[in-house]
Amino acid sequence: MSIADSLIAFIAVIGTLILAFFVSAWLPGIERRFQARIQQRIGPPISTPGIMAPLKFFFKEVINPNSPMPGLYNVLPIIGLIITISLLMITMPQLYVLAAFTSVIALVGLLKVEEIIYMFMGSLSQSVLSLKMPFPDIVKGAKHPGVRRSFVEELSSMRAFRLIAFGSFPIYIAIFVTVAIAKSIYISDIVSYQQIHGPILFSLAGILGAIVFFIGFMILLNEYPFAILKTKADVIEGPLLEYAAKYRAYVYISRGFLIFVLASIFSTLFLGIPPNILSWTILINIAVTLVFTMIMATVSTFSPIFTFKQFYPLVAGVSMIGILAIIASFL
């Protein structure tokens, strides 16, 4: 590869990233606005939740969070953001030369790290809202005074652990549907397979896989009804409770970015269209992102929170559909 080619590839990668950031900044606003219209109200302007709120948090005073390791706790959302960026980068066609790093295995590994971060966040946050609240709990006559006392975030840390164990199952199965069809773990092979045979989405296995992928997408984003990690009913915001100022802004940004990245992984694996600013097909990536955001907003507006009682059967059922899709891909 000549230097000129490398330069163009470099510019393309940077350009795609910038475009992705620009698009993803509007996504939380679109989602919120969509929900608001379903709820028969006007709702916030679409720039507010994704752009103005992070901007505002950047201009706030940086405080020391209540945490045993404040430094690590504050750095976690940045790590999450970097992982999300690398997730996007390994799907870009310019980087397929890195062979081993651009395989589905790397994709799955990075997604796993993204989930583990929540566990760390949960165990490091010690908000004022539960145990630190100055209230005389242990008094004469109180029940079980000797019991170990915990913060609500510990609860969500445990939930994050469980989600790692089973919650992200659907998205992995859906990813491996494409592997089974293209018979290769390399993203470049999956993409080139679809350029020859047409998108995987338009086959039986592909449709089933897409459904499973979407459920996995919502679980990974902790969106209602799968928001057990941060339900308002008990853990308030769960692992994110102590983030303030610019670190909260990173949390906001990385959430919007993750929507875009997961949707573009979908269009790479199921439509054969990797995100690439040098091609007009980037518009399809953006369209897929918008459609995903809107479907997600609709589903989350019409559903309550799921506890594990509903969560286990749902994930089991969706995983069964995923396995069916893999079987169908061999037919």
């Binding site: 109200r41 916030p44 103005m52 405080i63 004022v128 303030a244």
Partner: peptide, 21 residues
């Protein structure tokens, strides 16, 4: 209440002091 809907004036309700203004 959809009648008042503070979110249209860019006011959001939160229960977390770290997020609040």
């Amino acid at each position: 209440s959809p009648k008042y809907d503070a979110e249209q004036y860019k006011i959001f309700l939160t229960w977390n002091p770290r997020e609040a203004d």
